[in-house]
Nucleic acid binder design. Structure first.
Lengths: 229, 229
DNA sequence: CGTTGTGAACTCATTCACAGCT
DNA sequence: AGCTGTGAATGAGTTCACAACG
């Protein structure tokens, strides 16, 4: 298991958003699918994730040449390469704004830190909520955001505020230097180009589900069993 | 259950998953964007949602011819048509299995019923949880699922169980007659073709965010500001 | 052999650009 | 004049199929 040279992997490779999602899925699947010898084939990954084997090979080839023809992919180096490509070969610091029910669930979500994300700050405007403690964190007032965010050097923001407050909150976070937002509010955020947004919109997902079911009625051939978004 | 006449809208139109998501977004945008006279143009919708105007026209044309050339789209009939296409021109009944923190947040989520989805049952296996009341619902034991689900005629299932339990739970729901699943557990569910699955996978979304930020560094041209997906 | 990596073909989605209505 | 609907052009993403290689 000679992590060979793999030196200056010059080509930090950009892939499409959809491809990045598939990479995440391969990452998760690789561990559990690995046959005893620490190897996986494109076929195994393919049906763990629900895509074609050709798709898997194409995706993995784009990440770097890490398969052995006739053999398969070494799980350890494969996952390392995917992590590097996705930018999850490090930890990320995030703050969360809007401490409602959803926020409380997120704070307690273990997978969060298990995947390399550390929640380092909670903020809210409501006086009843500010000062309370959730998990290990004390909720701070929004007024402290800028200063506090400087201190804890978070680069990501999680928005669990009501729709009406979302845009303003996003702007505050961006002004405070955040570079990416995960938005749970049902609105489209307008942010500068250098800020990334991932939206998790439950209402839209519900409608999507209704749509799929609605049609699996009328004609039994809509595809099923895929991820999100 | 005679889905009424529905005059001659012969073409119950099937669209791609991505297109369906955009339709949801137009639906949401239409209300707020409507100029006083109850009309919207493709351009207005386009920049409310963040897609091109041509895209909007293409999408809306596929739903039915409901624009007036030279005028725009009538918000009322537009939203009605989109709702019909998405299958959200009716209410849907859903049960939820796995009453943890996330479930509690979902139960209290108002948008749920506001969008036409009624939560009609909660189930869990843990004796400490069974029998407690959340919102207006009493948590029932999994053992009752089949019978209880028959009674309350739910057609959708929401999975907020731990990853290990997800597949088995999905199977129980499917066996009990559910036709669509919203899966919050970080695993791919294997279900029969006639059952639709929408996955909401936070870990993958987080990695997506990391990826986008990671690269907005290295080259400032990755697209941002889109939904999910 | 078995399995990857990849040109070439193909399919699906998006944009262009303009004819067609109002 | 303004804005939609849509053929045609383009582009992105996926699958085919096979050469390359351990």
């Amino acid at each position: 298991m000679v992590r060979v040279v793999e030196p200056l992997d010059s080509s930090e490779n950009r892939v499409s958003r959809a491809a990045a999602q598939r990479l995440s899925q391969y990452l998760r699947a690789a561990d559990s699918v690995a046959s005893g010898d620490g190897l996986v084939s494109s076929v195994e990954l393919a049906d763990a994730v629900g895509v074609s084997a050709a798709q898997v090979r194409r995706d993995l080839a784009s990440v770097g040449h890490l398969g052995q023809r006739g053999v398969g992919y070494d799980v350890a180096s494969l996952t390392a390469a995917i992590r590097r490509t996705l930018g999850v070969d490090r930890r990320w610091r995030a703050v969360l704004v809007g401490v409602g029910n959803l926020a409380r669930a997120l704070v307690k979500y273990r997978g969060f830190s298990a995947h390399g994300f550390d929640l380092v700050g909670l903020y809210d405007t409501a006086p009843r909520i500010v000062g309370t403690t959730i998990g290990e964190l004390r909720v701070e007032p929004m007024s402290q955001l800028a200063e506090s965010l400087k201190r804890n050097r978070a680069e990501l923001g999680i928005l669990t505020v009501p729709a009406e407050a979302a845009q303003a909150t996003a702007e505050a976070l961006v002004a405070a230097g955040v570079r990416g937002l995960m938005n749970f509010a049902p609105v489209r955020l307008r942010v500068p180009d250098h800020v990334a947004v991932v939206a998790v919109d439950l209402a839209i997902q519900l409608q999507q589900l209704a749509y799929l079911v609605h049609f699996s009625d009328e004609s039994p051939d809509v595809d099923r069993t895929r991820l999100n978004t």
